[in-house]
Design a protein around this nucleic acid. Structure first.
Lengths: 214, 214
DNA sequence: ATTTGTTTTAAACAAGTGTTTAAAATAATT
DNA sequence: AATTATTTTAAACACTTGTTTAAAACAAAT
């Protein structure tokens, strides 16, 4: 038998509290990513987190709110570094190169993210636009200005910045959404798919730069 | 009071039979496209088709089978013309031009198709690979051979055909999956989105051709 | 006109859904 | 040590889900 001081007590309690809450978030995140909102039941979340069903409603008020919390967490984690690159003062070519590279690396680490976002986006359009998702995931103001400037300096051809950014995003993200068919068609393992994707870093960069030439 | 001959009788009966069956397919198709499999209940389908719930199980044995039927119908309709272009004996540039054009026109007519397919693909990977979908939607054997030949003739640079096809597909299809965010970000109406997409025909063509130059 | 076959109906079934309740267990405060 | 507050639990609630059943309505064949 032994005693703990106040700080230890506090630590342990907070630890436990965060534990349950975080266990819920973590289990729910995995399930939502794998199976989507509809195919994931609260009982499944509870069972995976090894907690009672009602605790989900105790910490988050509803399944819906838990879901929105998780969306924001996922998007927040994913978009941070990417926004930094896009708003940095790097030269255009280097910025594009880094953006492609970081975006692809991020998606390799979170291979289910794109499908998840697209699913939410098309099932609950209002949700992703209402939440701070639009700004985080698709904000090109700074980048557009840079494209304008480079054009006026005569360094690149004239492009529609909106179209150009969508091109870049399409080339980066779409293969992840289409992953299952790509793997099936080419008999790719998970590892081979990642290799296929990594090859794309240079391909995408070359395509975009080549297109920008005046 | 009047009598009908045999053929008229047959016609009317068949007409009615097809009517109920087709009413189910049509209503279910709209709902599945709009809301997906999970968020669409059989009672909603029945109500929209103005039939009794059990008729869905009478004509199709289950919701699942009805869904698979509809997937095949949608993919079949969509992929026909596209496969023809890809397997035609057109020159490379013209083939690419026509493929982009027809694909985009098809997606403008079926704006929900891409999201629908991606949703199925990621929720039930085995379904889209089991069904004849993979072959219909993503068959590049012929196209790959053509890219090889053009390279050997020295007319284009060396490219990985698989990567090149995925690039083309990404540029064509992704904006439709991302539609809601694009519209929100740019304050596009439906019409303006279609204009934005139509602009892409030339952009995508130029990007691909530019990249192919030796 | 009666039998046979097909299509449609209303009702029920069994299982699963998210959420709430009220009591129990545990921790914190006085 | 007794009281208050927080966290956890089991059970129930109200509702929706896809599917089945068995009878009714209807048409076709004998």
């Amino acid at each position: 038998m032994f005693y703990l001081n106040c700080i230890d007590f506090y630590t342990i309690v907070m630890q436990n509290k965060l534990d349950t809450q975080e266990k819920i978030v973590q289990s729910a995140t995995e399930l939502f990513l794998e199976k989507g909102y509809d195919r994931t039941s609260v009982r499944e979340i509870a069972s995976k987190a090894k907690i009672n069903v009602s605790l989900m409603n105790y910490y988050f008020r509803s399944k819906e709110i838990l879901f929105e919390t998780i969306i924001n967490l996922l998007i927040g984690k994913a978009s941070g570094a990417l926004k930094d690159v896009l708003n940095s003062d790097l030269g255009l070519n280097e910025k594009i190169r880094q953006y492609i590279c970081k975006y692809i690396d991020m998606l390799i680490s979170n291979p289910l993210l794109i499908s998840f976002i697209l699913a939410v986006l098309n099932r609950n359009p209002e949700k992703l636009t209402k939440l701070k998702v639009a700004d985080n995931l698709y904000n090109t103001d700074n980048f557009a200005k840079q494209l304008e400037e480079e054009y006026e300096k005569g360094k690149i051809r004239k492009v529609n910045p909106e179209q150009f950014y969508i091109n870049m995003l399409s080339l980066i993200a779409f293969p992840f959404a289409f992953k299952h068919l790509i793997n099936k068609k080419n008999n790719f393992s998970q590892k081979e798919f990642n290799e296929f994707i990594k090859e794309r870093k240079e391909i995408i960069y070359n395509m975009l730069i080549c297109y920008l030439k005046p």
